[in-house]
Design a protein around this nucleic acid. Sequence first.
DNA 1: CACCTGCTTCGACAGTCGTCAACATAGACA
DNA 2: TGTCTATGTTGACGACTGTCGAAGCAGGTG
Lengths: 131, 131
Amino acid sequence: MSNTRVLPLLDPDVSEVAKAPEAVAPCCPPLTERPFTSEEAETAARMFKALGDPVRLRLFSAVASHEGGEACVCDISDVGVSQPTVSHHLKKLKEAGLLTSERRGTWVYYRVEPSVLSAMGKLLTISPAAA
Amino acid sequence: MSNTRVLPLLDPDVSEVAKAPEAVAPCCPPLTERPFTSEEAETAARMFKALGDPVRLRLFSAVASHEGGEACVCDISDVGVSQPTVSHHLKKLKEAGLLTSERRGTWVYYRVEPSVLSAMGKLLTISPAAA
DNA sequence: CACCTGCTTCGACAGTCGTCAACATAGACA
DNA sequence: TGTCTATGTTGACGACTGTCGAAGCAGGTG
């Protein structure tokens, strides 16, 4: 289950994808545009929550900034916690749709899901109306 | 203690503020620029964590999108949890430096700390080097 | 085959978190 | 003064989370 179906943040439901098949639509409008609905909040919070732990943030940043946009676990696991804990956090990031993983021979490589970063960025955009 | 010193994300330490007094510097570089240090991760994670709860996200979005950029508690407390819980979450958002509050007569108004939004947005920017 | 290395899963434990009801406090107003 | 409304605080409780050591699994090498 290296590359299980993830991205629950961008396409939380299959029906959503069917509506806009050509481009993965961002889950939610900018935070400043209008009050989030319960569903939007649920979806977006999952994303923020995944980045709400220092260790996960370091792991994510390490992968995101690594050359080629991907990194082997061995490249990034020096964050001060045990190796099982690293694995645990990487799994969480994967479940949140922020990372994907692929095994190549001995090593496992993690890669940032690129559309997620921009989707989160848009969330924090100052909406034109508010500006 | 309505407007206690907050903003631990933007100026986590007084000494930091002393170094750059004219503008509140963003806490961290873009996530994609280089691996976060432990301190940077600690600071930024506090921010993400605060938004990592659906109820808090709805409250924050409600304040952020409200006219005038501020909202009375009574305007936004319809999020499906009890009033003490709303108060609890607003306190958390305040402690995270995302909101400020002010009492005006009978009501308490919450307002988004504007620099925080842009700081978080920059965090999620694709750094030029990675692009 | 046996053995080693890289990574994940399992099981357990302490600590944190979200929630509520009950109580407390601050202003407005009579 | 007393009372009413709007918020905040306290205390308790169940659920979730981060962490580790031990065990398991996958691939490479001999």
